[in-house]
């Protein structure tokens, strides 16, 4: 990863809640909109159910940012392939950004835990 790539990734952080979940859903393979909704719902045990409005607005944004693309033919589709639907695929940049976000969140959680530990011991 070059310094330019690093800058590009940092400029896109932090990700919005919905963006991060969609990227996570797509990291398992190409998926259509409804598939993403179901995947996110299952992964969060029903805590987060994306509405179509939020989903497609976010997808539009991810497409513009180059984090997601539309493949001509879906490869490794999540679940059964449906030829009538439009599929989305995470790009290399998308993967890098999702990892960077994961790293960022991990750091944040580590820091928070430290703060709580200090607070409890004093």
């Amino acid at each position: 990863m070059t310094i330019d790539d690093r800058d590009e990734i940092d400029a896109l952080l932090p990700l919005q809640h919905a963006e991060f979940h969609i990227l996570l859903a797509l990291s398992g393979g190409d998926c259509h909109g409804y598939g993403i909704i179901q995947d996110v719902e299952a992964r969060t045990n029903g805590a987060l159910r994306l509405s179509p409005g939020t989903l497609y607005r976010t997808i539009q944004r991810l497409l513009e940012q180059g984090l997601v693309e539309e493949p001509r033919k879906p490869a490794r589709p999540v679940g059964k392939s449906d030829p009538r639907r439009r599929y989305y695929r995470i790009t290399r940049l998308g993967t890098a950004v999702a990892r960077a976000e994961t790293q960022r969140l991990t750091e944040l959680v580590r820091l928070a835990k430290h703060v709580w530990r200090v607070a409890e011991s004093s």
Binding site: I37, P52, G53, L55, I59, Q60, R85, R86
Partner: peptide, 12 residues
């Protein structure tokens, strides 16, 4: 996205 959204809504 209109078609996709309508479709998703219908499934929901």
């Amino acid at each position: 996205y209109g078609e996709e959204m309508t479709d998703d809504f219908a499934r929901t």
